[in-house]
Structure formats: structure tokens, C-alpha cells
Write a protein that binds this DNA or RNA. Structure first.
Lengths: 139, 139
DNA sequence: GCTTGACCTTCCTACGGTGGGAAGGTCCAC
DNA sequence: GTGGACCTTCCCACCGTAGGAAGGTCAAGC
């Protein structure tokens, strides 16, 4: 099985598979005499594992950790769980951040007329100085 | 006002300000004879605008659009609103994606004993083949 | 056998944004 | 005139992925 088929079977591109090998995420593939990488069920299985971990948002580092735990038949499930929950916490942090952005922005948009006139609270919010101490009061 | 002070006043680093100039996001700053960039209230105001837009998660491209709308005194607020709502939609899309990851992962973690034993549904989920047609059924 | 096209190989580039640091110039206070 | 804090440009790194160039290989069809 060549790299293209293996990659397709795992839902990856051949480029990604070569990259994963280059950074040591997966062991170097066996080669044919012509230099072609050869993959078996085992290799595809590993690639699929990586694909899944990446789909769940794990970084390459975390994916590598998970791979090692996966290969270690005497791992403690507590270690896997710890990696997972740490990642969940990070995801939640990012979600909260994006949530805050979206809410702020939607609030501003809600106060924008959205017509042909130039007045716009969104731009005002973006341009207003945070403290108005230095500025002459409007009234 | 030198770049360091201007950057600090806007909540940016000097590096970022130079970068923004290099990609044409802001106009090239006036220079002293010695080549130092000089910023006035106007420039700082613009940098602060950028800082705010970035904080709301706008890409450089979108930030550039917003800047142009900001400078265009005859803009239609509808255009600003459109950019904002488009971004809100993208934020919501990302949030949903992360939400889905977090939920999946937390669900899996909830079924993991998290003790010294190796059995772990998280790793099982990551390694299981999507269709089990090729595999001998377990029973 | 030879051609064609799909695949493979390595190597370089870019992207979005930010940070680090080198090597050198400038400004100001002491 | 010296020290240190600032400035300048330049290159490199990060994280993953994609694109492409230049060349080698394999299998099918004639």
C-alpha cells in the first residue's frame, strides 16, 4: 500500500503523512527498493488514530502523547483521562473567548441601523478611547 | 512620539506596529531625520482601532476592511454591520466546532475509569475503525 | 518496446500573525 | 563622552497545511 492509498484510508493527505513522519510523530515507513513508502494495516490504523485526535482538536504534541499512551499497553487510564480533560479545559477556554467576542459584536450590531447612513456604533466602539480623561467632555 | 510609546499606548508591541505598516494595514509613518518613526494622536488612534478589532477576533483582512470603512466618512452603516455579522457567523461556526469537540471528549472521559488500569474508552474511540465490515465480529 | 499518465520522491515556498535576536544607529541623562 | 534605552533593518522560528517544481517509478495500452 502506497502513501496515497494509506493517507486516503485515514482521511489524510499524502503531504500530511510525510510531514507526520518528518517530525517523528510516526515511525519512518518501510520503503520499496525504489524508495516508495509502504504501509500496512498497522500503519493505516495509526494514521487514522492521528486523524481522529486532530479532529478532536488535539495539538500535535498532545496527539503524540496520546499515541504513546495508546502504544503502551500498561498505561494507566488516569493518564489518558488527564490529557483529555486538560484538552477539554483548553477548548472551554477558547470557547469562552470566542463566545465573548461574538456576544459583544452581536450586541453592537444590534444597535447599528444598518442602512445608508454613516453613523455606526460598531465603528464608534472600535475607535473610542478607553478612558476619556484626556479628551474634552462632549457637553 | 516614537514607535515604542505609540505601540504601548495602543496596547501593541513595536514589532506588531512595524508589521502592520509592512503589510500596508497602516500608512507608512513619518520619519525623523534619523529614520525613527513618529506617531501623533491620529496614528495612535488608528493603532488602537486595530488593536480593538483584533481583540474581537477580526482577521487582518477584515480589520483592513473595517479601517477603510472607518476612514470613509460617507460609508453606509449597513456595510459595517455586514462585516460584523459575517464575522459573528464565523465565530459561531468555530464555537460550534469546539463545542462539539469538547462535548465528545468530555463524554468519553466520563466513561473512563481514570485509574491505574489500562482500559480506556478514549483510546478505544480514537483507534476504532469507523466501519467494522472488514473486521471479524467480536462475538 | 515505447508512450502516457498517475503515482511517488525530495526540496522550497507560502500562509497568518507574533516573538526572538543579531548587528548597527540614535538620543538623552549623567 | 559614556552608558543604557531606544530605534533601525534583517533573518529565523513557531504550527500545520497546501502548492508546486523537478525528477523517478509503475502499470496499462498499443
Amino acid at each position: 500500500m502506497n502513501i496515497g492509498q494509506a493517507a486516503a484510508a485515514a482521511g489524510l493527505s499524502a503531504k500530511m503523512v510525510r510531514y507526520y513522519e518528518s517530525i517523528g510523530l510516526v515511525a519512518p515507513a518501510v520503503r520499496t527498493e525504489a524508495g516508495y513508502r509502504v504501509y500496512g494495516t498497522e500503519g493505516v490504523h495509526t494514521l487514522r488514530f492521528i486523524k481522529r485526535a486532530r479532529s478532536l482538536g488535539f495539538s500535535m504534541d498532545k496527539t503524540s502523547e496520546l499515541l504513546q499512551l495508546w502504544r503502551d499497553k500498561s498505561r494507566a487510564s488516569a493518564d489518558v483521562k488527564a490529557v483529555a480533560l486538560e484538552h477539554v479545559a483548553e477548548l472551554e477556554r477558547k470557547i469562552a473567548e470566542l463566545r465573548s467576542m461574538a456576544d459583544t459584536l452581536r450586541h453592537l450590531a444590534g444597535h447599528c441601523h444598518g442602512d445608508a447612513r454613516p453613523v455606526c456604533p460598531i465603528l464608534e466602539e472600535l475607535s473610542d478611547t478607553p478612558d476619556r480623561v484626556d479628551r474634552t467632555p462632549p457637553g
